[in-house]
Every structure is written in structure tokens, then in C-alpha cells.
Design a protein around this nucleic acid. Sequence first.
DNA 1: TTGACATGAAACCAAATGGTTTTATATAAT
DNA 2: ATTATATAAAACCATTTGGTTTCATGTCAA
Lengths: 122, 122
Amino acid sequence: MSSSAQKHDVFQAIADPTRREVLRLLAEKERPISEITAHFPMSRTAIAKHLQVLSEAELVHGIKVGREKIYRLQPEPLTELKQWLSFYEKFWENKLSILKHIVESSEDQRLQVIKSEQTDKN
Amino acid sequence: MSSSAQKHDVFQAIADPTRREVLRLLAEKERPISEITAHFPMSRTAIAKHLQVLSEAELVHGIKVGREKIYRLQPEPLTELKQWLSFYEKFWENKLSILKHIVESSEDQRLQVIKSEQTDKN
DNA sequence: TTGACATGAAACCAAATGGTTTTATATAAT
DNA sequence: ATTATATAAAACCATTTGGTTTCATGTCAA
């Protein structure tokens, strides 16, 4: 599963369903590893490695408290995802016709593609 | 690289930087495989497989035109990502107002992009 | 018709991924 | 002091991933 260095970014981190579920659990509240593990049909070690990946992406942060390591959500890196997504929103939002007249009067090739998607049926 | 069936979802599809760049290229305009390949330091076969993954996630769609296969962006599955993200927004929005402003200004930029597209190519 | 072009398909490969088991160590509870 | 708890670290493993090379096929152009 690796672990070394800066290898994992937020896109990779959320690609795995188990890790997304871990994030959801930590969104509710901070939890120690063993408590997180209890929600999955796999070993604590496996979950610990998932937490490492999430930690490299800085989506979670764990602190030692006594013999437990308590993880909490750190959602900030998701802003990168949001910004990435925002670029693509125009490609589906216009289908709600807000930009429809702009698209139809444009000579722009890219926007013509969008326009043809609306009428076409090839 | 696999290919069989419904194996790839949108989260996995966008996890790879090459595939994100492919999406960006297709956001500009539809393109045949060879044209996409020209933007990368890898073989056409590799790009073709990336396109398969994107196709399984229904983020792109390719049609045969003559001897070319022309791919175009299909952004709809990204709404799933947006929905997933929206759940986490409340965890940072009232927490870091500076980041909030950055995100908002990037939305402004998106609108400016659309606006400039109307005149850019003419 | 003969190439050149664009893609498809298959076999192959190294590295990464997602898991396991085993062993060790620190802390808590009795 | 002893034992149970919580985690860490390492070795191991099968499958997937991201790439390659090679060969086959369909289409356009001269």
C-alpha cells in the first residue's frame, strides 16, 4: 500500500470507497483507529494504511492520546477538488438553458459542441 | 489496465493525472485519439486505455468517424462528485473565510471564461 | 491497387494497491 | 507486576494499474 512521502493527493485519496467511508465516519466525529475499524469487514492494519493515505493527502490528522491514536477530519484539501470541479460545471449547467442563448449565438467551436449535444441525436 | 464491465466509477476515473488532463483537452473540443496522444509523452495505446477507463465512467464518449474515433466530453457523471463534495462543504465554509473567498473568486473566473469564449476565437 | 494512417487487440511487464499475518512496543487497568 | 488493549512496523501476497511492444484490420489517398 506504500506510505512513503508525498505520494498521495486528494484525487487518489478519495478514489477508494473504503477511504470515502472513513471520511464520512470522521465527518460525524473524531475516532480512534479501532473504532473506525469496527465499521469495516477488514483488519485494523488495513484501515491504518488507509488512514495513512488519507493523512498524506492531509484529509485527516491523527494525534496520539494515551494508547489510542485519534483521527479527525481535515476537509481543507477538498477545496482543490471543488475548484477542479467548478471548471466543468459550465458544461452541464448550461443544459438548464441559462446560457442557452449565448451558446446558440456563439461561433466558438467548443460551445458549438455543447450546442449540438442539446439538439443532436445522431 | 483492465477494461471489463462496470469496474470504473467517476472517483477512480479522475484519480489519474493523465486522465484529468485528457478531460481538460476534451473540454476544449472533441478530438480523435491520435490528437489527444500528441499532448502526452506516452504511446497511443496507453491513451486509448485511459479513454476506455473514462468511457466506463461515462465521462467521455467516442464515435467512429471514418478511420478515426472521435471522443467528446460527457460531464454529467461529475454531478455525482459534486454531490459528494457538497456534503463536506459545511466542514470548511464557516471555518476558513479566506479559503471561502478564493473559492468564490474562482467561480467568478469561471463566468469570465465563458464570457471570453464568446469573443476569443473571433 | 497500393500504401499510409488510425485504431483495435493481445501479450507482456514492473510497480502500485489493498489486503493479510506476525511480531514488537507502549499504555491502561486490575 | 501482570495482563489486556491500542497501535506500529515489517514481511508477504494476489490483483490491479499504467505502461510497453507487436500484430491485425479498416479506411483514406494517390
